[in-house]
């Protein structure tokens, strides 16, 4: 699968852009947190597309943001 680029994204309608990003992010997130992957991906998709593209290219950035999402979810569920 070829890398997702900003020009590929720009050619798609806004809602489709998020779906495209989600399709790339989901398998990566699923390998870290299989049970929460759909929820975490949904949370991350609210971030700007340019930042999401950066995360797809930077495993460290993605990993940090996924861990942040898990912490937010756990704090939310503890309420």
């Amino acid at each position: 699968q070829e890398p997702l680029t900003s020009s590929m994204l720009a050619a798609a309608p806004p809602q489709e852009q998020k779906q495209l990003l989600g399709e790339r992010l989901y398998p990566l997130i699923h390998s870290m947190h299989s049970a929460l992957a759909g929820k975490i991906t949904g949370m991350l998709l609210e971030i700007d597309n340019s930042e999401l593209l950066h995360m797809l290219e930077s495993p460290e950035s993605l990993h940090a943001k996924v861990e942040e999402a898990v912490a937010v979810l756990q704090a939310h569920q503890a309420k």
């Binding site: 989600g22 399709e23 989901y26 398998p27 929820k39 949370m43 943001k65 999402a69 569920q77």
Partner: peptide, 21 residues
């Protein structure tokens, strides 16, 4: 530092993992 991530965000539904009809 407070996270900007929203725990009430809509869950992502991947096409690739969808059940075939």
């Amino acid at each position: 530092r407070k996270s900007t991530l929203n725990p009430n965000a809509k869950e992502f539904n991947p096409r690739a993992f969808a059940q075939p009809k």
